[in-house]
Simulated scan of single mutants.
Amino acid sequence: METHVYIDGFNLYYGLLRGTPHKWLDLERFCDQLLPKNDVRKIYYFTAKVDARPHDPDQPTRQLAYLHALETLPRVEVHLGTFMSSVVSQVVVDTDPATGRYLRAGGKPVIKTDAAGTPVKAWTFKSEEKGSDVNLAAYLLRDAYQENCACAVIISNDSDLLTPIRMAKADCGMTIGLVPPRPKGSVELKRLADFKIEPRVHLLASSQLPPTLQTSQGMVHKSANW
């Protein structure tokens, strides 16, 4: 089947790539190996440009090099959302003094309270990625209603995609595949998909871009930290 792949970049990174030496991922080769029986025509990659952090000032440089590297792959389209940052007052969860991990009771985090039983609050810096899930849903539905492909494969754990996936299946008869970056992803997404593929580590290792690439912005190099 003619197939389009829709990748939630942050889901992929935090669910599958973080902490591995496989971040310099060739998305075309990865998708072709995931779907050897499908004709993968287009790969959408949805992400947002990150900001420098005190503990990792080079994070934007690494990401930009990777985005430039993806420009060399003719079947890949990169679509950028945005980050929104704000300072908000939030309740504090209680922690275990021995481990530092937050406590849970009845499957829910335990809220820290003062002597009067009032929830303790603290000012926190909150950074949220906006747009990737909406962009993914929009491109999925456009392809479904325009009959641009017979099969859509979604690399994400985001349950916010349930409604657009249902619409693509019910209204257009689109076949939906799911590649969950985290083993404990959305149960609803897994039930809704027509087929599911577990991404194996060996596919990541065998789907790496060359360490140096010529791009429209000049030569880019794989980061030594990657």
Rank of each mutant, 00 (worst) to 15 (best):
Y45I: 03
S127W: 07
T175A: 13
Q217M: 04
E129L: 01
S156T: 09
G218W: 02
K126Y: 00
C151T: 11
L17A: 10
H22F: 15
L12A: 15
L162Y: 07
K37M: 10
L35H: 10
P211E: 06
P57I: 04
K23I: 09
V50R: 10
L141R: 08
L178M: 04
R200M: 09
R191A: 09
G173C: 10
V88C: 07
F10W: 15
G131F: 05
P74N: 11
D56T: 03
T72V: 09
V134S: 05
N157T: 12
L34N: 11
P211H: 05
S159W: 06
T113H: 02
I111T: 02
G15Y: 12
D114G: 03
K196H: 03
V40G: 10
T163L: 10
A193R: 06
R101F: 11
I111L: 02
V92W: 03
G81D: 13
A137Q: 04
R166F: 04
E198P: 01
A137W: 06
P164K: 12
T215Q: 08
N148F: 10
K49Q: 14
S156W: 07
V92K: 06
V76H: 14
D158M: 09
S86Y: 13
N148Y: 07
D96H: 09
H202L: 00
K130G: 00
Q59I: 15
D56P: 02
K169C: 04
P164F: 12
S85A: 15
R104L: 05
Q217V: 01
L213S: 01
P21W: 09
F46C: 09
S216T: 12
H4D: 13
G9W: 08
A224H: 01
M219N: 02
A105H: 07
A205I: 03
R75Q: 14
V220P: 00
L103G: 04
Y13F: 15
P181S: 06
G19V: 13
Q214E: 12
H68A: 14
E128N: 01
I43W: 11
V78C: 08
H68I: 07
G131K: 05
S159Q: 08
E198K: 04
V179N: 06
T212R: 11
H4W: 14
K121I: 03
V87L: 08
K108R: 04
D158C: 08
V110Q: 03
K190R: 15
W24P: 06
S216P: 04
V88D: 12
Q208L: 14
M1P: 11
I165H: 05
R18M: 13
V40S: 13
D8M: 12
G100W: 04
A115L: 02
K222V: 01
L161D: 03
R18G: 06
V78Y: 11
R53C: 07
A48Q: 01
G100S: 02
R142H: 09
S206L: 05
M219T: 03
M84R: 12
Y66P: 13
A65C: 12
V120I: 13
V87M: 06
R29W: 12
L136V: 00
P164R: 11
A116G: 01
P54R: 06
K126I: 00
K130N: 01
A98I: 01
A138I: 12
L12E: 15
L136N: 00
C149G: 09
S216Q: 14
L161F: 06
I111K: 00
D160F: 08
D133V: 09
